[in-house]
């Protein structure tokens, strides 16, 4: 039973991909709970289902079966429009490849999710953008275009974009994947700072060094949640 502090609750979640009469079980009976203010890292080898799970958590994809409660509300069967609204208001995404829009300035990129909210005055939007960019130390680059920034700077802008809407949770998919170690560490410190300030974070990573930054680590293998020991054992079996 979910407590009042539970933000995400998943029960027996499955995801099957069908291609050319081949069924691929990406997720098989996942159970997971994430509380408000928690910092969870999801790790596992390539193809274990981390990114699929994150996409379902972020309402970018729908599960084949099981239950998903966000803020105690079932969200697995919502319409596209409702999912868009919830993504906009409750979820902040940070992607591996930053996914900033090349045509828009830093400021416009950060403002983008806010423009999808009906009725938010322009002044409030500008205030939030400035605040988010200041939090990631990128306010001085507001007028720049993404192509004029380094990879680390682009990812900080992506974090600011995720923060600007004050979401319930930040979902980060391999946020350091396209960065060198120095910039990767900087982004990890930034996420740690945000967590300390109260943000809920769920991060997918395959790098154990970065997973250690999280409060809790969830291990996935072949679409299932396993313990750290089980993961080690299964990985050794595969490698053998």
């Amino acid at each position: 039973m979910a407590s009042n502090n539970t933000l995400i609750e998943i029960e027996d979640l499955t995801k099957i991909f069908y291609t050319d009469e081949v069924e691929t079980h990406a997720l098989s009976g996942i159970h997971l709970t994430i509380s408000r203010g928690e910092y969870v890292a999801m790790s596992g080898p390539s193809g274990c289902g981390k990114s699929t799970l994150l996409s379902i958590l972020g309402l970018l994809d729908t599960p084949t079966g099981g239950r998903y409660l966000l803020n105690n509300n079932p969200v697995e069967n919502l319409s596209f429009g409702d999912r868009s609204r919830i993504r906009n208001q409750e979820i902040g995404f940070i992607f591996q490849s930053f996914n900033l829009i090349g045509d828009l300035t830093v400021e416009e990129n950060v403002e983008l999710p806010l423009t999808y909210r009906a009725g938010m005055p322009s002044a409030e939007r500008k205030g939030r953008v400035k605040e988010a960019l200041e939090r990631v130390n990128m306010a001085h680059r507001m007028r720049h275009y993404p192509a004029q920034l380094s990879g680390g700077q682009q990812q900080r802008v992506a974090v600011a974009r995720a923060l600007a809407g004050s979401p319930s949770i930040l979902l980060a998919d391999e946020p350091t994947g396209n960065l060198d170690s120095k910039n990767g560490e900087a982004v990890m410190h930034l996420l740690a700072d945000l967590h300390r300030e109260g943000s809920t974070i769920c991060m997918v990573t395959h790098d154990p060094r970065f997973a250690k930054h999280a409060q809790r680590e969830v291990h996935l293998f072949d679409g299932k949640v396993v313990s750290e020991d089980e993961l080690k054992k299964l990985t050794e079996e595969v490698e053998a």
């Binding site: 970018l60 429009g81 868009s84 993504r87 906009n88 208001q89 829009i101 999808y116």
Partner: peptide, 12 residues
Amino acid sequence: DIGVRMALGATR
């Protein structure tokens, strides 16, 4: 870019 916009909450 369209995928990103949708991920950020843009409706169809």
